[in-house]
Write a protein that binds this DNA or RNA. Structure first.
Lengths: 143, 143
DNA sequence: TTATACGTGGGGAAAAGTGGGGAATTGAAA
DNA sequence: TTTCAATTCCCCACTTTTCCCCACGTATAA
């Protein structure tokens, strides 16, 4: 289970440290891909396999399904954790997510999200302001 | 079952003493996360597991579900109680809840709430003043 | 008044995160 | 085929943060 918010830095070589806690889970293989709201999703091998399966079975006759598949499947890349506990993010994903030096890594149960710090700050600020409304809606979903 | 109101202090290292009564219940694992009205929620491991499960199953294709998950899952952190009976609150949660030196820990049955003392005072003052109205509305919910 | 327990503060050791240099490997050009 | 250049990968070292332990003060009860 991934939870929490971590602040790390992306170096000039495109390397990003994974929080110590999560390395064991990702050691068997990790997959990054494009996410929503301009962040990246990082999955364990097992979770990625489940998701990829679902994506592959989307009806490719539908334009939206094709777009979704291209976004997440073609966007994906398997990454390895080096001896220092870092992964290398490919150029196209750094560009997509607008990552600069300061990066936020967020745990969302079965995935990690990688955000540019500025974007994350703006996003959470906005969400906090709307949290009461959102919570009302969530109660309808049984939370 | 957590009840009562306790006043403690947060030190420079972000450490907060948990009231003695509650340590046994939280000893097996405790989880803090963002709450409502700018306070933090503190759960036992068992209670958190139930909540996290629900949050994880929200449909991530919906913008509001994602926002809620990011507030509460990415907001969460598992904390351990040290030999002195304290937990460490991460920087981002202290910022979120506006905690300063004086902190209130309040028991709410299946969770504890952590408030900045000032905010708590204002909130309770306001609620006490409105208690009659609130009570009317609650009766509709079967209380 | 003394003893005990709880809460608070701080210092030192260890670990995690970050940056940079050098070796090895790959690819391209002569 | 050989050589040069560029990129990738690996390892070392520094810095910062975290964790663990000890000690003091205050409150409470005997």
């Amino acid at each position: 289970m991934f939870i929490g918010e971590y602040s790390h830095t992306l170096d000039d070589k495109g390397r990003l440290a994974v929080p110590k806690k999560f390395r064991a889970a990702l050691g068997k293989g990790a997959f990054v891909t494009r996410g929503f709201d301009n962040c990246l999703f990082l999955y364990t091998k097992a979770e990625w396999a489940k998701l990829a399966e679902k994506l592959a079975n989307l009806p490719f006759a539908q334009a939206n399904s094709r777009a979704f598949g291209r976004l997440m499947l073609a966007g994906a890349m398997d990454v390895e954790i080096d001896k220092q506990g870092r992964i290398i993010l490919p150029e196209y994903l750094r560009g997509f997510s607008g990552l600069k030096k300061n990066v936020i890594i967020a745990g969302l149960y079965n995935r990690l999200e990688i955000w540019d710090q500025e974007k994350w700050r703006e996003y959470t600020k906005k969400s906090e302001a709307e949290s009461n409304q959102i919570a009302e809606q969530m109660s309808a979903l049984g939370v």
